[in-house]
Amino acid sequence: MAPYALPVGIVGTLVSVVLFVYTRYDADRVGVSRPLLWSLATSGTLVAGVVMYLFTSAPLPGVIMTANTGTVLYGFERELTRRDEQPAEPGQLPFGPGESESVDDRLASGDAGPVSGDDPTARSQSADGRPAEPTDAEDVADPR
């Protein structure tokens, strides 16, 4: 057994317990459905990562990905819950095929799309509404 195994195991266990408690508290506060399940998912994947690190020869990037999976998925679920008025449904997209957010919904959420001048491919217009002539700063065909 490696000399660092005991400290890593102790720290991993303590961090897992703290993560479980905090996830449960945060999920209750935000209103995420099934807070106990999310608490188990976040702390369980961390424990799995610590066990893989200590007792297997798994590559370190895989161990890190395993340890972070539950926390990342909980972050997505939390964002969906805070964004929508309804609780998030696992396995269901917010919009069905062919549906999209209406312009009014985007304006209300503050995501109205690009503002004039944000689109680098858009050409500027003169005062009378006609497209302006290309300048040196814009892509112009090279005469060479």
Score class of each variant (00 low, 15 high):
Glu99Cys: 12
Asp84Ala: 11
Gly9Ser: 02
Ala88Ile: 05
Gly31Asn: 09
Asp84Asn: 05
Thr121Ser: 13
Leu40Ile: 13
Val18Arg: 14
Val51Glu: 03
Leu80Trp: 09
Asn68Lys: 14
Arg34Lys: 07
Pro114Val: 01
Ala67His: 09
Asp105Glu: 13
Ser16Leu: 12
Ala41Asp: 00
Pro131Asn: 02
Pro7Ser: 09
Gln125Gly: 12
Pro35Cys: 01
Phe76Ile: 05
Ser39Asp: 07
Ala27Phe: 04
Leu36Arg: 14
Pro59Ser: 14
Val50Thr: 07
Val18Ile: 13
Pro134Trp: 03
Arg34Phe: 07
Glu85Cys: 06
Leu19Ala: 15
Thr42Asn: 11
Pro97Asn: 12
Gly75Ala: 04
Ser57Pro: 14
Met65Ala: 15
Leu54Asp: 06
Arg24Phe: 05
Gly129Ile: 09
Glu79Ala: 10
Val17Glu: 11
Asp84Leu: 14
Val63Leu: 08
Asp84Pro: 11
Asp111Gln: 15
Gly49Arg: 08
Leu37Val: 10
Thr135Trp: 00
Val18Ala: 15
Ser100Val: 12
Trp38Pro: 03
Thr121Ala: 07
Leu73Asn: 00
Val21Thr: 02
Ser39Tyr: 05
Asp104Pro: 01
Gln125Ser: 14
Arg130Asn: 11
Arg106Met: 11
Thr81Met: 02
Leu107Pro: 13
Val51Cys: 14
Gly98His: 12
Asp119His: 00
Arg106Val: 14
Leu73Trp: 01
Gly75Trp: 00
Leu6Ser: 15
Ala112Val: 03
Gly70Lys: 04
Phe95Val: 12
Asp119Pro: 01
Arg24Tyr: 11
Phe55Tyr: 03
Val21Lys: 02
Asp28Trp: 08
Gly44Trp: 08
Ser116Glu: 09
Asp26Trp: 04
Leu6Gly: 12
Val17Leu: 06
Ala58Val: 14
Ala88Arg: 05
Ile64Thr: 04
Pro61Tyr: 09
Ser39Ile: 03
Ala132Gly: 03
Arg24Gln: 04
Tyr22Gly: 08
Leu60Ala: 13
Asn68Trp: 04
Met52Asn: 14
Asp84Ser: 12
Phe95Glu: 13
Pro114Asn: 03
Val51Arg: 10
Leu80Gln: 02
Gln86Tyr: 11
Glu77Asn: 03
Gln125Leu: 15
Pro120Ala: 07
Gly70Pro: 11
Asp26Asn: 01
Trp38Ala: 01
Tyr25Leu: 05
Ser102Lys: 00
Ser33Glu: 02
Gln86Arg: 15
Pro87Tyr: 00
Gly113Asn: 06
Pro90Phe: 09
Gly110Asn: 11
